[in-house]
Amino acid sequence: MTHAIKRGFIVVLGLLVLLSLPGFLWRPQQRSEVRSHYQTLMAPVFLVPGSSATQNRFNALVKELNRETPATHSLLRVEVKTTGQLVYTGRIQPGDTRPFIVVGFQNHHDGAQNILKQAKWFALAFNALQKTYKFNHFSAMGHSNGGLVLTLFMENSLDQRAVRANRLMTIATPFNLEEDDATVDTPLFKMLEAGRQRLPRQLVVYSIAGSKTFTGDGIVPFDSVNRGKYLFQDQVKGFTQITVTGANANHADLPENQQIVALIRQDLLS
């Protein structure tokens, strides 16, 4: 009897050793495994203004977003000069895991060529910030052409092995520029469409359209915003289109529109 019981004890100890073996064998891979699923505490939210707007474009929006939230998030503004030099204003508070980073451009003019340049400049700023703050995931919001800058960046310049894009919100972004004729594809749209397969697979995208008249928000034609679906649908994890009407639904007022502020809170920051 005693003998049998002692044997049971030994068997369980032996079982413990046996079950531990895979752990010992796996341990050399552990570090790379942990690293590959590691998410930094910090995940900044990038805000990119549209053409003719500077890095100060979103000051009021950030103030509004910081109202009613328990912890206020800091605001860092970066201006990329045409030479590629970066000028910082504001700062990221230590311990802030969701800071807002606004990236503006010295050359903030409209036009396909300028937008392509801005996307390159954005990548420059992004890489510098990523090196400084060592985040490995982020979200982004672009107003108007800012959404084009972000989409181009994600297609062409984002190193998806190092950094993961969580969510993207575009507000009144003209994926077919200001082209009124729905049958005409602009060269920029063709370029975006050709690169759509390089978009991050796990990205969740929200595209918001303002509707002042039945055809657009006064500046951007609705059809041009609507073209986002040809880029994101079936390419990213989720794509949601939202149309906002009512007061402050014209193009320039959209970022301060209360409905859109609520959408940013709900879909981008939650």
Partner: peptide
């Protein structure tokens, strides 16, 4: 410091959690 894996045999938890 490393995340613990569910179902790790008890005495091995600390070994794997400390990276060996």
């Amino acid at each position: 410091a490393y995340p613990l894996l569910t179902g790790t045999p008890g005495p091995l938890l600390a070994f794997l959690g400390t990276g060996g």
